[in-house]
Design a protein around this nucleic acid. Structure first.
Lengths: 110, 110
DNA sequence: TCATTATATTGATAAATATCAATATGTCAA
DNA sequence: TTGACATATTGATATTTATCAATATAATGA
């Protein structure tokens, strides 16, 4: 049982978190911005909670500027974890579909 | 919000289901076999429940022989969904890492 | 220091879900 | 048809977790 994969899949297996991930794809947003972009459907503490989960899974980068915390999606981590998923659960297709050499290995999430 | 991706991620985001998926990778097993391979930690109704979830997500193929139901992992589906995940959440890496042409498009899971 | 702003944490609640015992359904052999 | 076996379904329970209001923490400017 690969704990890394399990942690990754649990982290992304949520509606709200996937929306947040989409927002953080290719740009930096602070928490208030995310709350606003979610259209008021989700309150700030909830967003903070999800960001913490994503951070624990190493799925976001954080940068602090004054009192604002900016987040962005860690696409490299997503890539690595998807590669792991493929190796585990699609070994027969992995070689033809994925260029494993192109996936940079990262530090192990704790 | 991509319902397919959400369904996929939720289906695989579980300890026991990942163990079952690992067992069903590259081979056919019936329900009793799976229960046995899980070492008695999980009872038959629980396994049936998880298999149903995996089937709903189109992540397993089923073949019936008499009273036995044989399952195997649908690696093609895993491949497709990982490709979708990459496109959504790792667009900057997708092109260099994945050969999208090699991913056969499947019927949409209902 | 004090007030303001941004984010995190806490505590509570509701919803989702993983699990199992008991039972039902389906299949086949006698 | 009956009995045995394989799997699915039901109903109940416990755990997990998503969510929010209230509050705490942290940073900044006056």
């Amino acid at each position: 049982m690969d704990e890394q994969i399990l942690k990754f899949t649990r982290a992304i297996a949520d509606d709200t978190r996937q929306r947040i991930m989409a927002l953080l794809c290719c740009r930096w947003l602070n928490v208030s911005d995310i709350v606003e972009q979610l259209g008021g459907k989700v309150k700030q503490p909830t967003v903070s909670h999800h960001l913490k989960l994503l951070e624990d899974a190493d799925l976001v980068h954080v940068r602090q500027e004054g009192r604002q915390h900016f987040y962005t999606l860690n696409q490299q981590r997503v890539t690595f974890c998807c590669g792991q998923l493929m190796q585990q659960f699609a070994p027969d297709y992995c070689d033809t579909v994925i260029n494993l050499d192109a996936i940079e290995v990262q530090k192990n999430g704790s």
